[in-house]
Design a protein around this nucleic acid. Structure first.
Ligand code: NAD
Ligand code: NAD
Lengths: 243, 243
DNA sequence: AGGCTCTTGTGAACCCATGCACAAAGTCGT
DNA sequence: ACGACTTTGTGCATGGGTTCACAAGAGCCT
């Protein structure tokens, strides 16, 4: 079944499934239905089943999925069987937070190097690791072990640093700087853009506000609720739809 | 024209376009072609034009788009004409970094409150703002001014804090905790999940690695590969395309 | 054994998004 | 004034992803 070609949208959800599965495992559950797992992961059950089918799942009809087996299978697919090396470049405001983040290690990511070029930052020890100058990048990267580079430098330096990472053999980059990175084919870049996220929220908030003033479908409706929604009309919790 | 119904995928790209436009404006350009702007934003030109058409764009054929006019139009759509209030809850590792982030203010987001419940954190002044206990949330939120809540608390407290934000009238939430938030309809949630991003990168890196071991045009696999993929799906070569 | 209940896996319809290709519409040079 | 050139805006085809709905499979109970 699902050897090659796992759809990208599915891949993006696997981490969520994995987290939910771990929660079920911790709670002592031995099996889960697609319904329960989907609920915990915040998606529809049909989507979940289709996603799992893409990687050749082993559910048993009438029962559900074996928690431990499925957890291991997804973990395998996400490469969690081996531990990945991570280097962080730019140990400023954000870099400090990232360097001390426990969510890395618990998911098989090992921070093996911190880099910066600020004279007063280099040499500092952050979360047990010394901050090194970028020149020492080569001493940390092992050719055999694929390494993920995390960029937390100012936007104007991001491309330059990225180039150096790529030149040193990094083929996976997570970019926090609000800029478009250009990389050769074969190199993966994902970006986390905080300002964009806020802007998208603002767009929707604005849309909600203008809608409230001039509602489209029912013009005859009298005063709608002045403040949007009541928090505890909890008849249906309804997961917030995102992308 | 694009009054209502801007596709979600388009909305997600508007911030990128806006950034690229600002760069062109700073460089002194008065007009840009869709080709140039798309290049700067890292998308295809056709996609860009279609996106702009959704919001009723005013390009002139043969010339391109007026930089300033388009910039203002997108800024309007993203709600940047008014300044949005932002509260950050959880002033730990990450919260400190967020509170000090300059990318907020420069895009019309004003941090109006920092909240935490740790005794040694409350009272501390971070980036010019005092850290307050959550109880004072009501004192900061103004009913008339929509406010965006940023969650940087540990995962196990995220839902509880979110509920309190929603109860206080917040209808837009940006969540950094690796957990699924349940909110009533009408509340927007977006999440930033660092660990997931790394896992997705790891997935692709692993795929690249196994592809390298067993290249595509090799129909007759000699012996089973050492460890890579599951035994049951060795069948079906299926010439994969590069991404 | 047989029927009942539960749940998976998936075919098929639908919706959204992407990319192509080109006519319409404008500018610029002569 | 006009033709050549440039670039937008969009119709259309294609593809990916989501959702529905249900038959097939698995356990359980009598
Ligand atoms: N702070 C946040 O909350 C936040 C949030 C989202 C995105 N970002 C983005 O993350 C990046 C970093 O933000 P920050 O607030 O940590 O900035 P910062 O200025 O605090 O830190 C940047 C660090 O990068 C180092 N640096 C600069 N140029 C370098 C180079 N060429 N090589 C190596 N190191 C270099 C600097 O010495 C500094 O320590 C920025 O692009 C910012 O837009 C930050
Ligand atoms: N540090 C990172 O780089 C990073 C990266 C990605 C995601 N995250 C996530 O962001 C969240 C915060 O991470 P962190 O590293 O800053 O953790 P942290 O422990 O350093 O900070 C958490 C803060 O939240 C406060 N807090 C706890 N419960 C609270 C409550 N009920 N009400 C108000 N405040 C409360 C704590 O007092 C503490 O100051 C976590 O969910 C983490 O998984 C962190």
């Amino acid at each position: 079944m699902g050897t090659v070609d796992v759809p990208e949208a599915t891949v993006a959800r696997l981490p969520q499934y994995l987290r939910a599965l771990s929660a079920f495992a911790d709670a002592g559950a031995r099996t889960v239905s697609s319904e329960a797992l989907a609920e915990a992961a915040g998606v529809g059950s049909a989507k979940l089943r289709k996603d799992l089918s893409h990687l050749g799942s082993y559910g048993t009809r009438g029962v559900g999925y074996d928690v431990e087996q499925l957890r291991r299978q997804i973990a395998d697919r996400l490469g969690q069987t081996t531990s990945w090396n991570v280097v962080i470049v730019g140990i400023g405001n954000l870099g400090h937070a990232l360097a001390g983040y426990g969510g890395f290690a618990s998911r098989g990511f090992r921070v093996v190097g911190l880099f910066d070029d600020g004279p007063q930052v280099v040499g500092e020890v952050v979360s047990g690791l010394p901050v090194r100058p970028l020149e020492e990048l080569g001493e940390v990267l092992r050719p055999g072990e694929p390494t993920i580079g995390v960029l937390a430098v100012p936007a104007e330096h991001a491309q330059g640093v990225c180039d150096r990472l790529v030149a040193a053999g990094v083929t996976s980059v997570l970019n926090f700087a609000p800029t478009v990175l250009r990389v050769p084919a074969g190199v993966d870049v994902r970006k986390v853009d905080l300002a964009s996220e806020l802007q998208i929220l603002a767009f929707h908030a604005q849309r909600k506000a203008t809608r409230a003033v001039a509602p489209l479908p029912a013009p005859a409706a009298p005063a709608a609720a002045p403040l949007p929604v009541h928090p505890l009309d909890a008849v249906r919790p309804r997961v917030g739809e995102v992308v």
